[in-house]
Structures are given as C-alpha cells and as structure tokens.
C-alpha cells in the first residue's frame, strides 16, 4: 500500500469510526422512544379497561419522546454536516464551527471514558483547508488527549489565530499538557502539515495549522 492509499484508508477508517459512534447513539435514542411510546400504549390499554391513569405518567413519557427527538435531530444534523465535509477538497473553513462539530462527534468517546469535553476560548478564525482532514486531525488530537487522561478529568479545547494560520489548544485543568510526548500523534500531525508544541508552564498543547498552500 503506497502513502496515498494508506492516507485514503485512514480517512475511511475515521469516517467509519464516527459513523459507528453516531449510529450507536441513534440506537439509544430509538430505544428510549420505543419504551416511552410503549408505556403510553400500555397506559392507554389500561385506560380502555377502565383503570384510572395519572396524567403525569403520560406527560412524562411524552416529554421523554420529545426530548429524544430533539437529541436525535441534533445527532443527525451533526452527522449530515460531517458527511458534507467531504464535498470539497479545500475551502475556507470556519475553525470555530469545525471545533464545535468535532467536539459534538467526539462527546460519546469522552463520555465512555467519563471525561468532560469542554469548548474553551474560541476566537473567530478561518483558513483554507480540507474540512474532512481537519476534523480527522482534530478528532485524533482529542482522542489522543483523552487516552492520557482519567475518569473525572476535563479536556478543554479552544482555537485562535496564529500567524498565517491558526492554533487549537488542548488542556486538562490540574494535569500536564495532554499531547506531551505523544510521538504517534505528533507524527500524524506532521504528515498532515500541522505541528504540535507544548507549553509546560500552562499545561497546554498547541496544534498549529497553516492555511492550505502556505508555507
């Protein structure tokens, strides 16, 4: 497998991981709706048989359905935006939006590790980039950072302009800089035209990006 085929395969694997996580979340949404709708059905059958039903039981089940529909809608919207990130090769990308979307798509991974994922300081910044590759890089950086943390920790991710490009910051309050000494992730970042640096004093790792076509 040559370098281009390997990169394409890694991109496909990333798409698969995100799709699997999203479909799992949607299944959970369906499961709650199934039980809440089933409960309304059970209560209706009881009412038909002349048994008294408390309206609040129906309301609670109906509220659960509406809440899960909102949850499912947000999940599908994020998946749709993610799927459309492959539409164009390179375009002007709003990094704040990309960060929010990547955080939303990574929340389940963080939840499974019981780590809180927080959007930190986000300055308005955009740059020319491939949005899919950018999300893959950011997702990988968050996944690598989560691997270095423990249950109960928080990971704060922000973005700001830096020179001709931009920089994502990752920090975990009370902990060392998350991506320090992560050679595997640093190599991935380099292969995608980004660089990782660590500010040990503030415990922050910076993922620096250049706009596509700049040096």
């Amino acid at each position: 497998m040559n370098q281009s085929e390997a990169a394409s395969r890694e991109g496909l694997q990333f798409f698969g991981r995100v799709s699997a996580s999203v479909s799992h979340e949607i299944k959970n949404v369906f499961a709650v709706i199934n039980e809440a709708a089933g409960l309304i059905g059970d209560l209706t059958t009881m009412a038909e048989r002349g048994m008294p039903i408390k309206p609040e039981r129906l309301k609670r089940a109906s509220d659960a359905i509406q809440g899960q529909i909102r949850r499912g809608d947000a999940i599908v919207k994020n998946m749709n935006a993610f799927a459309h990130s492959t539409d164009e090769d390179v375009r002007e990308v709003n990094l704040g939006e990309i960060l929010q979307l990547t955080l939303a798509l990574t929340t389940r991974l963080a939840d499974m590790k019981q780590i809180r994922l927080i959007a930190g300081h986000c300055e308005p910044v955009s740059l020319k980039a491939n949005p899919f590759d950018l999300m893959r890089l950011l997702h990988s950086s968050i996944a690598a950072a989560l691997d270095s943390l423990s249950a109960g920790d928080s990971l704060v991710v922000g973005v700001e302009p830096a020179g001709h490009g931009a920089s994502f910051s990752l920090s975990a309050p009370g902990k060392d800089a998350p991506l320090a000494n992560d050679e595997a992730f640093s190599a991935l970042a380099r292969s995608m035209g980004a660089a990782v640096s660590v500010d040990e004093a503030s415990g922050t790792s910076l993922l620096r990006l250049r706009a596509a076509g700049t040096r």
Partner: peptide, 16 residues
C-alpha cells in the same frame, strides 16, 4: 446508563 430508558422500561415491566 440511559436513565429515561430505565424509567420507562422498568415502569412497563412493573405493569407486567
């Protein structure tokens, strides 16, 4: 871990 799932399913099981 889905609390609403637990609430609704347990109520349905209790009704049975």
């Amino acid at each position: 871990d889905e609390k609403e799932f637990l609430t609704n399913l347990s109520e349905r099981m209790e009704l049975r």
